[in-house]
């Protein structure tokens, strides 16, 4: 089992967590896509693995946060990829799960990238995308951007 945190080279744009689970992709896929199973390890939800489906993750409200994460299913690629948008507190992310069969189980990669549609558009050629922005600011921020 390996476990990696956010990739320093990616700066603050993208958070990547990877781990190999000693279980077949079919089983991991169920844990990621069956609502009652998702509830057990992630959060209460009304998820359905249907592209375009809007759903919510709900956790205990805390001060300054109602505990609600608004999502929409973006990709359902059976046993391989699952993606949904993830919005709370005015910050929009995209969560992408990628499953790859490994010798002794399944390699699971979770990528949470910011910051919504504008961010995506920025990647596609706009002059001041987040990538360039953070790359440039890393120097200004010194070590604190890692």
């Amino acid at each position: 089992m390996n476990d990696s945190g956010s990739n320093p080279a990616e700066g603050t744009r993208t958070l990547v967590i990877e781990r190999v689970f000693p279980h077949p992709p079919e089983k991991v896929w169920r844990a990621l896509t069956e609502s009652p199973l998702l509830t057990q390890w992630l959060m209460n939800n009304d998820f359905e693995p249907v592209v375009g489906r809007k759903f919510q993750f709900r956790s205990e409200p805390v001060p300054n946060w109602d505990g609600v994460i608004d999502c929409e299913v973006l990709i359902v690629d059976h046993l391989k990829r699952l993606s949904y948008s993830w919005s709370s507190l005015g910050a929009d992310f995209v969560v992408l799960w990628t499953l790859t069969p490994a010798e002794d189980g399944t390699h699971v990669r979770m990528e949470q990238s910011g910051f919504g549609p504008d961010h995506q558009a920025a990647y596609k050629g706009a002059k001041y995308g987040w990538q360039r922005f953070f790359d440039g600011l890393e120097r200004v921020l010194g070590g604190s951007a890692g």
Partner: peptide, 18 residues
């Protein structure tokens, strides 16, 4: 980062039980 690592741990426990 801490949130997702914690959830990965929980996913692992769940997979064992399933």
């Amino acid at each position: 980062g801490a949130f997702w690592r914690d959830r990965f741990d929980r996913l692992e426990v769940l997979l064992e039980r399933m």
